[in-house]
Design a protein around this nucleic acid. Structure first.
Lengths: 109, 109
DNA sequence: GCTTGGAACTTAGTGTTGCTAAGTACCGGT
DNA sequence: ACCGGTACTTAGCAACACTAAGTTCCAAGC
């Protein structure tokens, strides 16, 4: 979708990944393919890995290394308590923004 | 709302301003107060002016200088044809993202 | 045995964006 | 003459997604 989407993903992609991790741990490569299945076909692999490093450093996820049969060891990410809190705040922020925008769209204006 | 909102506004603030300009020309200071009335109380003045310069350079708006009784001359921005096209694309991008996120939220997951 | 290809992750550098902070210009009221 | 509100500008910063190139590990092919 291009440049607009790139900019719009700033601030939302982190929330999307946190949401994907709710109830189901996953590793980077897996998350990338999940995103692509969800329609985010243009998200670069490097972007996802960088994001994962970031949320790990922020302490939003726990990490566990597990061997893979097909390649180098996987880093499996699990949402922890702090991550759930962050995800909640994300949904709040999103709701606020979403409501304003839908209103603006209705006004046509 | 803090840092999350700051990041989420990247990519959406431009669309919001373009939407505000639909059908009604406005100048910078006015747009800032409009945004605040709409609930975006934390958006910095400088941010809005910088954005206006940007969309002018992109050719999305036409600008006209009009004297003010209360201060320096106002720069009045009007959405032009190219701006309307951009706004349409913005709504498309927004719709896509919005649908994905609502689905994610529903899944709970 | 060696190479190819896919799985899985890493790193360095770039551009865009919103924010902070400070400033300038103009005017009315006290 | 000064202050506060209007209105706009500018320089520097931080965060984020992207590009591009790389590294590691293993299985299957010739």
């Amino acid at each position: 979708m291009g440049k607009q989407m790139t900019e719009m993903l700033k601030g939302t992609l982190e929330g999307i990944v946190l949401a994907l991790l709710t109830g189901k741990a996953a590793y980077g490569y897996e998350i990338t393919t999940l995103l692509r299945e969800q329609g985010f076909t243009e998200i670069a692999e490097g972007t996802v890995y960088a994001l994962l490093v970031r949320i790990e450093q922020k302490g939003l996820v726990d990490v566990e290394k597990r061997p893979s049969e097909k390649g180098p060891p996987r880093k499996v990410y699990t949402l922890n308590a702090q991550g759930k809190t962050e995800l909640n705040e994300f949904w709040n922020t999103w709701s606020f923004l979403s409501e304003r925008l839908e209103q603006l769209r209705k006004e046509g204006n």
